[in-house]
Amino acid sequence: MNDRHDDDDPRLSTGAYSLDAVSPDEAEAFERATDASESLREETDGLVETAGLLGLAITPVTPSERMKAELMAKLATTAQLPRQEPVAAVPDASAEPESAAPAAPTPVETPAPDARTASTAPRAESRARSRWFARPATLVAGIAAAAALFVGGGVVGTAVSGGFGTSSVTDASAAGLAEITAAEDSQRSTVPVEGGGTATLVWSNTLGRSAIVVDGLTPLPDGKVYEAWYIDAEGAAPAGTFTASGEGTSWHVLAGAMNPGDAIGVTVEPAGGSTTPTTDPIIVGQTA
């Protein structure tokens, strides 16, 4: 510690602060100082803006397709800080640390602005379940059996193929997911995954498409795949098979057209998929 006494003058640190060349502790102390001094704050804002110009002069780099798809999927599970309406003292708004660590994905118990989806979700879910091959009473037991599959089959390393490749199939799926989540009438609903965790259903009625997004979906043993279904009064129509990556986010853009109100289900099926479900669903939800 050979700090000199003049290092303590916050005025000397405006340049270093604007370039992020101070330690987190120093940054915090400096920000407190700017709150107390208008001239200090003014100089700081100007230098921060100037640093931004240094950033603008850097050659842009095009991100991969999947970066956007992943990001759009993560929005569904990332809560937003509330808007601070004019001095309407919201008691716990200030309790949220401004620069909290990497946006810890908060499970959406109470999805922020989309009251529509939030209020319909529980009802929709029970409706979907009651439709599941007219065996609502056995659903829970069936789910336990499906979960047991993971254990029985022995969860060994990566099953089938990691979902995190850069194959064109993945990229196409990523683009599809981005399209659905960005649609003007995009809706979502969070449903439990049997065996643990939650899945997010995302759909757009105007596009007639939907997708399932799951964090940390368990990889299946060899010879098994996840299969998605669109379910209506007529029964269950296959909507494509997929595999889990084990860690990170797995998603599947459903094949075929979605009609508003369709339920969406996921079962575990033999490799290659089935034409009708052979097990009880591990995920069920309903579009609206």
Binding site: D7, L12, S13, E43, L47, E49, L54
Partner: peptide, 21 residues
Amino acid sequence: VGTVKTRLRDGMIRLRDELGV
């Protein structure tokens, strides 16, 4: 460190003025 801080601040102020911020 004090010298670094001074260079950063003087340099950034100069840049700010040159760039018309």
